[in-house]
């Protein structure tokens, strides 16, 4: 009886592992495909023409792709940074408001996250064009900040709710200025939320296509919009090489961060 039970448990354990494995194959199959294609000597996607590093060398001579890459990174960094500052300040302000006002503001804040991206994109496009603002770098940056702020607030707000207000007041009683007390007492507590908010905003900006598509105008290209215009002509293999490099870099960074000893774990020990 127990043996039978053990066997069946082992079997369901195997099934579970297999299921998780299949899902991750599904999620990562396209990524592996793109990596393989970046080493493909044949220019067409459907044929394997042998191994080559050619595209990696050509990538660094392809100014259009490099320009789109730098645009993407600059917009992602600036929009995430500005959204983090605005969003964190907003969280502190909103926390000190009446409950009813908090509810209304959080409702508005959730709109860009829950609404259809195509509607957000066209609404911003209509705004910029009717105000006579020339679409380009600035309009894309403003749009990215707009859809990034909710992700920052979503990450910072829960941390702020956990902060004990008495420690801040104690710091004030002991003679600290409000700004000094905030950065010494409150900020360290919400820092993980601020950091993950920044990271999420950066990722969202990096991966955005739809909103950029509507707000970018003619002159500017990010990686996404460049890929979209290349779809019909055929994607340049340099693009596969670039995205492989980006992916590997992020993967290595994440592994390093996870491998680093957790300072909190040390404190406990």
């Amino acid at each position: 009886m127990t043996q039978k039970k053990q066997a069946s448990e082992r079997f369901t354990g195997f099934l579970k592992k297999f299921y998780v494995f299949l899902i991750f194959v599904f999620l990562y199959a396209p990524i592996v495909t793109l990596m393989v294609l970046s080493f493909n000597a044949s220019k067409t996607r459907s044929k394997w023409g042998g191994f080559t590093l050619k595209w990696y060398f050509e990538l660094f001579e392809n100014e259009a792709i490099l320009k789109a890459f730098s645009n993407t990174m600059i917009i992602a960094f600036l929009s995430a940074l500005i959204a983090t500052i605005l969003g964190t300040a907003a969280c502190i302000g909103i926390r000190n408001m009446k409950k009813r006002h908090q509810g209304i503001i959080m409702g508005v804040t959730n709109i860009p996250m829950l609404n259809a991206e195509i509607v957000t994109g066209i609404s911003l496009m209509l705004l910029f064009i009717s105000l006579g603002i020339k679409t380009g770098f600035l309009t894309v940056l403003l749009s990215h900040i707009t859809f990034n702020i909710p992700y920052v607030i979503l990450n910072v707000m829960p941390k702020l709710k956990q902060v004990n207000n008495s420690t801040y007041e104690a710091a004030l009683d002991l003679g600290a200025s409000p700004v000094y007390a905030f950065f010494k007492v409150v900020f360290p507590d919400i820092l993980p939320g601020v950091f993950s908010g920044f990271l999420m905003a950066f990722t969202m900006s990096l991966d955005d296509f739809i909103i950029t598509h509507f707000t970018k105008g003619a002159g500017l290209d990010t990686l996404s919009t460049k890929i979209y215009t290349e779809v019909k002509k055929g994607i340049k293999p340099e693009m596969y090489a670039l995205s492989t490099l980006i992916f590997i870099t992020v993967l290595i960074l994440l592994i390093l961060v996870n491998k680093m000893p957790d300072p909190k774990a040390k404190e406990k020990a």
């Binding site: 991750f24 999620l27 990562y28 199959a29 396209p30 990524i31 495909t33 793109l34 294609l37 996607r45 459907s46 999420m200 990722t203 990096l206 991966d207 296509f209 990686l223 996404s224 890929i227 979209y228 779809v231 994607i235 693009m239 596969y240 995205s243 980006i246 992916f247 992020v250 993967l251 994440l254």
Partner: peptide, 21 residues
Amino acid sequence: MLFILPMWMNFLLRTLAWQTL
């Protein structure tokens, strides 16, 4: 992280990769 990681490879490219598959 495992679910967010794929987002670092452009979403248009990832979707296009399904064409190849």
